[in-house]
Write a protein that binds this DNA or RNA. Structure first.
Lengths: 154, 154
DNA sequence: CAGAGTGTTCAGAGATTTCTGAAGACTCGA
DNA sequence: TCGAGTCTTCAGAAATCTCTGAACACTCTG
């Protein structure tokens, strides 16, 4: 088995490119590569050499988005966390807000520019495009979920 | 007609959230709201109050991605640029590299962690997810293009 | 081919984001 | 209720990213 640390750091770099802050990206990668099912904040901080504050912030962000969750940890005072099933689909879903914002920006733009301006044609295309994506992206992600777990009831 | 400048600035803010740098986002919005079909670098700089260097950088980036293009400008020494058709679809397509990088990061991770580790199960799901998206996202964007311009030959 | 008008580059200033670490809040068992 | 252990917060330090503007390069025109 090759160097998992390097692979994790490489993945963190990619995640950071995608918009996560560096510490959060490294924490996310650490979750992916962990040998155990769940990990504690202290373990993450020690392993990645980042401050407790950074770990806390990363965990808060990842929890809010819904890619990790607290695990009941009987007999331990430290909180345990683990990746949730379908984390990557969740992460991508969380970017739908962006698509919606684009749609709304186009809409407001048309209002501001008036319907007969040259700008209106461009803004109309933009609105249509993001409207399409706003409808279709969630459907695509749902299709992935269905393919991965056929026959499950919600 | 309401204030187009404010609508443009608002759109630029959204674009910046999406990862474009601020000057580039403002230039992109200016293209969307322009009253004319094409604009010059000088016009952009003056209108947005940004330096020539920033305008140059923004134009370079937007050209590279393929959302704007140079327009032949007979009788003018200044370069003219305009939005290309399907700019937004192009912009979204340009993010496929991200998806591919995620897929590859997962793949390398499995190699590094070995097939029987707990990490391998998580990394396998990640690889499958981004593999799916890498196939399906371009198809989705193509469907948009087809819906928008039915019956065209490539 | 000279020169005016444009475009590009890049070092450094400036703005912004991110991280740290210590103070304080919280939690749970005794 | 107390106190040890853990977590969160946040002001300021550090790191990073972005913009500026002047120097340089390029490209037409006459």
């Amino acid at each position: 088995m090759a160097d998992t640390t390097e692979a994790a750091e490489r993945m963190a770099l990619t995640l950071a490119q995608g918009g996560l802050q560096k510490a959060t990206a490294r924490v996310m990668a650490a979750f992916m590569f962990a040998d155990t099912d769940s990990v504690t904040a202290a373990e993450l901080g020690e392993q990645l050499r980042i401050s407790s504050g950074s770990v806390s912030g990363a965990i808060k962000m990842l929890s809010t988005v819904g890619v990790i969750e607290r695990v009941p940890a009987p007999g331990s005072r430290r909180e345990h966390y683990r990746l949730r099933d379908g984390a990557w689909a969740t992460l991508m879903s969380s970017q739908n807000g962006m698509v919606q914002a684009m749609f709304e920006a186009a809409d407001k733009g048309i209002e501001a520019a008036g319907p007969d301006s040259p700008a209106a044609r461009r803004l109309g295309e933009m609105r249509d495009f993001y409207g399409f994506m706003f409808r279709e992206l969630p459907a695509l992600i749902d299709r992935w979920r269905a393919e991965r777990a056929p026959g499950r009831q919600p």
